[in-house]
Design a binder for these strands. Structure first.
Lengths: 232, 232
DNA sequence: CGTGCGTTTGAGTGAATTCAACGGCTGTGG
DNA sequence: CCACAGCCGTTGAATTCACTCAAACGCACG
């Protein structure tokens, strides 16, 4: 296994997983460290646009990124959030199918798609990692489809909080990089519903919200129950 | 390019695409033809179960397959339909994350996961095709997330009809292999809403429905407009 | 000619939305 | 240090779209 592949713990692999190509130990073998260039993006800056030729792959070093689809009447959908370590920009077609924007000031590593593919062609471990990465991405999309298709607002928020607790550093307290609007567009809700649902969770002592973007999980079991109404 | 890779037309690649690994011309190089075994499944038969070890990959020869997630309170979500030529059973983890069932009597080609991966390791074109296949699968999942997160019932049905018209044989008339309940669980709606929306489309002369499972598209433009409320 | 399943239709309900106003940070300039 | 402006988030009231519950329809099959 490549050093920069994610070592997924048994439990972690059951949860929505970040799309990781980490450089934990051996940067010498990591294509991003070897041939990637570093770029800085300010909060809300566009990294690439929908329908633009898909020429690069990106890895988040610090900050956070969202991928969006916009409908002509203004409806917005956020397909995913990318946090440090996550890879994004994978495309089946020649152009990006969504735009990518910095949720806040972010540092990214950029690698040319062709260069990385050439690398993968030469190194079996690289392509294994790339494919694995794509498969995990797919898995998360499938999870999210279930959420969007069949879950109520409360369950969506529960899933979101657990996902963020899993992916962000800092045990019980989550410091959200994204706005309520971002959360709403990710979960297929309105900003008002997100706000109301979080307020209700706070009344129910499930979470504590000392500041809008700082959420502490008080009763994780309750969240897991909401989220785990799945088949045995 | 491998002969059994999908040759996607420019327009087709913009639409939800089946996950194809076709054997159009050279069965001699197609791993499914070479090392796959044929299996028959009756209508509603389970092909594999959620959480079962993911040991095989499947290609639909004839019939149709659905992948499902079940929640403990009975809610069902259909992740995808697979039609002749489509590949399914790709997994990032060691076990299937959804069950697969025959929508109707179906003939499938089965290949051991390990055998196919060994094949891919030896043949660069095989893994390219496999990865490409995964990427297209991901693309369709992303499309579907937008549908489930941000589209109204009418738009969902429009997208569904256009997808099926694209993927099923027979120009303007669609012969649906799946029930209304299947459609509802795929689109994140109830069976009643699906039925009512189709009836309304028939009143609006957008479709004609001589039999429940036979739908003719009368005004494709209207459907495309409903579906194409996307950013320029 | 029933029986049974899948589909349609109807009536009433409800969860999330829309529209609207308010509250509370944060940063800036007086 | 305070006042104010501009965001972002919360709360309230009314609406709506899809859902639930219920019944009828129609087709296929024995």
């Amino acid at each position: 296994m490549l050093s920069w592949q994610t070592k997924s713990a048994p439990t972690a692999s059951m949860l929505p997983m970040p799309l990781n190509l980490r450089s934990d130990a051996a940067p010498a073998t990591d294509p991003f460290d070897q041939i990637g260039t570093c770029m800085l993006f300010e909060r809300n800056a566009e990294i690439f646009a929908e329908n633009e030729p898909a020429e690069d792959l990106y890895r988040v070093v610090s900050g956070a990124v969202r991928t969006c689809n916009l409908m002509s009447d203004g409806r917005r959908h956020i397909g995913a959030f990318y946090l440090p370590g996550d890879l994004f920009g994978l495309e089946a077609s020649a152009s990006y199918r969504f735009s990518a924007e910095a949720v806040r000031d972010s540092r990214l590593l950029v690698v040319g798609r062709r260069a990385l593919l050439a690398r993968a062609a030469a190194d079996r471990e690289v392509w294994t990692a790339l494919w694995d990465c794509t498969l995990r991405h797919l898995q998360r999309a499938q999870n999210h489809m279930l959420l969007l298709g069949r879950k109520c607002a409360q369950e969506r928020l529960a899933a979101f909080l657990l996902e963020m607790a899993e992916r962000l550093p800092g045990g019980g307290a989550i410091e959200l990089p994204m706005s309520r609007q971002d959360i709403a567009d990710y979960l297929g809700l309105t900003i008002e519903t997100v706000s109301r649902t979080l307020t209700q969770m706070e009344r129910d002592r499930i979470v504590e919200i000392p500041a809008a973007r700082l959420i502490e999980l008080r009763n994780r079991n309750a969240l897991v129950e909401m989220n785990d109404r799945m088949a045995a």
